[in-house]
Write a protein that binds this DNA or RNA. Structure first.
Length: 103
DNA sequence: GGTCTGACTAGGT
DNA sequence: AACCTAGCCAGAC
């Protein structure tokens, strides 16, 4: 049984529709901890691909974050492009278009 | 419990 | 717009 915070994060991530994204801080805000964005990132890393669309979570600059993990960024970008999300020349996406908020 | 780490963020330069 | 810094939060040990 994973920690409650992780489960809560995954529940939210599972609600993100294909072709849309959410920011780490945004999810943290929904959980009542607006400054807990880093904990959300850790929850993604620990998701273990357990039917969680982790690739739909990015940072607030509209950029893929995965700093220290060499392989993942490439995979995340491919998964998003497969959902028709468009990256600009700097490797970012337009949050005004793709950012999704529940409800 | 205390301490350290990090898929983060906001704010100043 | 890009880079640096300090602050915050949940987890792991």
């Amino acid at each position: 049984m994973p920690p409650a915070y992780y489960s809560a994060v995954w529940d939210i991530v599972r609600q993100i529709p294909a072709g849309r994204v959410m920011a780490y801080g945004q999810i943290a805000t929904l959980l009542g901890t607006p400054r807990g964005a880093q904990g959300v990132g850790e929850a993604m890393f620990r998701s273990g691909d357990a039917d969680v669309p982790w690739h739909r979570v990015i940072n607030k600059k509209g950029e893929i974050s995965l700093g220290g993990h060499p392989d993942r960024p490439h995979i995340q970008r491919e998964l998003l492009e497969a959902e028709e999300v468009v990256f600009d020349a700097r490797g970012r996406i337009d949050l005004r278009v793709y950012l999704w908020w529940p409800g």
